[in-house]
């Protein structure tokens, strides 16, 4: 039997499909960040004031903080199960470029946890008094922001997967790196609301995203290789 070697793109697709299939069977775990996001943002009007004009001032920031924390929540377990059951070992030995496989896994993770946050953002934003005119900016800033966070978090999760109680370490690693996203993201929303052009912060977010996309796989594969050495 001479077997045909799987092309790298097809291999990455298999990893993506696998995580989708697994998520479908464990949907309660996947839904957790989204529930957290909705709950936190709806608590703000209850705790502060129901006055929409007052909420509007902090609305963009609240949505962004909640999205950031919700993304972090889902990250810790990203690679844990795969490292513990030996799947990543087989990925390392598959003869495929490990970085692409891990990027595919992160992409699946983003579709399952980041994308729902983006889609829900107009609804939770409306609850915080954000006008419809900022929906576009809010969603596009979150689209770039959650994408970057998934990759940054992927690097952090890959580094801490071998560490016991890695979740604390993970937050310490990823949160400082996520601060520029938070600043540019909420700034873009508030600029749009004040009638200025949000192009500047959005372009910076895009630049950070593409930097993470190009360097992330290299960092993740190096970190996973260290983790399987144990």
């Amino acid at each position: 039997m001479t077997a045909v070697r799987t092309p790298t793109l097809a291999a990455a697709k298999l990893v993506f499909q696998r995580d989708m299939t697994l998520a479908w069977r464990r949907w309660d775990e996947v839904a957790q960040p989204l529930i957290f996001y909705v709950v936190v943002t709806t608590m703000f009007p209850l705790a502060t004031t129901p006055d929409l004009s007052a909420l509007r001032v902090i609305g963009g920031g609240v949505v962004w903080v909640a999205a950031l924390l919700a993304s972090l929540l889902a990250l810790e377990a990203l690679f844990r199960a795969d490292v513990e059951d030996g799947t990543t070992e087989q990925w390392v030995l598959s003869g495929q470029p490990l970085g692409y496989l891990l990027l595919a896994k992160v992409a699946a993770h983003w579709v399952l946890t980041g994308l729902p946050l983006v889609i829900m953002s107009p609804i939770v934003g409306t609850g915080l008094g954000l006008p419809t005119s900022v929906w576009g900016v809010l969603m596009s800033s979150l689209l770039l922001g959650t994408g970057t966070l998934s990759i940054l978090g992927g690097i952090g999760a890959a580094l801490t997967v071998g560490v016991r109680r890695g979740s604390v370490l993970l937050s310490l690693l990823v949160l400082p790196l996520a601060m520029p996203l938070l600043i540019f993201g909420s700034r873009a929303v508030s600029m749009q609301m004040d009638g200025d052009s949000p192009a500047g912060p959005l372009q910076l977010l895009a630049a950070i995203f593409f930097m993470a996309l190009s360097l992330g796989p290299i960092a993740m594969s190096a970190a996973i290789r260290i983790s399987v050495e144990n």
Binding site: A3, R5, L14, V15, R18
Partner: peptide, 9 residues
């Protein structure tokens, strides 16, 4: 399918 398939079609 998802693990051995990474190597060979």
């Amino acid at each position: 399918k998802f693990l051995a398939g990474l190597r060979t079609t």
